[in-house]
């Protein structure tokens, strides 16, 4: 089953994203890919397919979509209001999108990045070995009204599964490890950094987000100039005015500002999902502990498929109960789990 998903209306921040491209740092291209990699893994688990397939990332708000054939879809990441032909559908779940039906996805209720996955993945053209748009590098473009995306062959059949989502959409504590230039900051500054409650600034995007606070900026000891060095996603660089700036998937590949620490990769979704104004605190943890967290998270993600459970429907909240029976027979197959 292959088909086409057409975008009837697009929010301002829709792009095709996958796990990003590796091997091009040497040429100045950062990995890029989904801002929330956990959401990619969750979508793959819900559809029972590989996490390397491309999905649509929706920054802050979704859009309106229609397919020319029956498609399996999954919705993950920042929870958004979603409906198929007017009937509300659950977030962090898989559904059947019948041919010709209208899928409407609204604004994020919390968090920043929502994801629309399809069975078989989107077949956007590959550049440097990946399908993800990397706007900062000039690869790909934001999706717009009228765009038609090809969908790859889908061998799966199951829909109507839900997955309890890790709550990572309201900020909170983000763990960091010391990195290249952490020791350039005096201990007192590192302590103050941990004690400060930051707010995610409004200027954030896929390249990075400023972390604002009411206190003074953070300073290194003396006016050190550091030679430009490699940047990795999660690096927290401190710019000239002392504001920490967390670099995300689409950052530059090198930087000369000192970095106070690096966000542990498994906590990066929490940071990337924090919407403007949301409170975030940073905690240093030892490298050994971070390594264990990462290994455990990799195992947990491998087991996500086993965590998917059939959606339970409560007839008292199904105001449109009849519509379920009136749509094609296919939808009744997995949806009738009561």
């Amino acid at each position: 089953m292959t088909g086409t998903l057409t975008i009837l209306r697009a929010g301002p921040g829709l792009t095709v994203q996958d796990g990003g491209r590796t091997g091009w740092l040497e040429y100045g291209v950062s990995r890029g890919g989904a801002a929330d990699r956990l959401a990619l893994a969750e979508g793959a688990a819900l559809l029972g397919q590989g996490a390397d397939l491309a999905a649509i990332e929706m920054a802050g708000m979704g859009g309106e979509f229609q397919a020319d054939t029956d498609l399996r879809i999954a919705l993950t990441g920042a929870p958004m209001r979603a409906s198929i032909d007017g009937a509300a559908v659950a977030w962090n779940a898989s559904h059947l999108l019948p041919a010709g039906a209208r899928l409407i996805i609204g604004a994020a209720r919390s968090g920043s990045y929502g994801y629309l996955h399809v069975g078989g993945g989107f077949q956007a053209p590959e550049h440097l070995g990946a399908r993800s748009a990397h706007l900062a590098a000039g690869i790909g473009a934001p999706l717009a009204e009228g765009d038609a995306l090809e969908v790859g062959p889908d061998s799966g059949r199951t829909t109507g599964l839900g997955l309890v989502s890790e709550d990572r959409f309201e900020g909170g504590i983000v763990r960091v490890v010391a990195s290249l230039q952490t020791t350039l900051f005096p201990d007192a500054e590192l302590k103050r950094f941990e004690q400060t409650t930051f707010r995610r600034g409004a200027r954030g995007n896929r390249m990075g987000v400023p972390m604002e606070s009411d206190g003074e900026g953070f300073r290194t000891e003396g006016a050190r100039s550091v030679v430009s060095e490699v940047i990795v996603p999660g690096d927290i660089q401190v710019t000239g005015d002392g504001t920490p700036y967390v670099l995300l998937a689409e950052s530059q590949t090198t930087g000369g500002y000192p970095r106070i620490g690096t966000v542990v990769p498994c906590d990066l979704p929490r940071l990337a999902q924090a919407a403007a104004g949301v409170a975030v605190q940073f905690r240093f943890i030892p490298l050994d502990e971070a390594v264990e967290l990462e290994r455990a998270e990799a195992e947990r993600r491998k087991g996500l498929r086993g965590q998917c459970v059939p959606l339970i429907r409560d007839p008292r909240t199904m105001t449109n109960l009849l519509s379920y029976q009136l749509i094609s027979g296919a939808i009744a197959r997995e949806e009738d789990v009561l």
């Binding site: 490890v177 290249l180 030679v227 990795v232 690096t262 490298l287 990462e294």
Partner: peptide, 17 residues
Amino acid sequence: IRTVGVDGMLVSFGSRL
């Protein structure tokens, strides 16, 4: 030799160019 983030290492041959 220093660590970079959780899964990286950097071998530096000088502190300036």
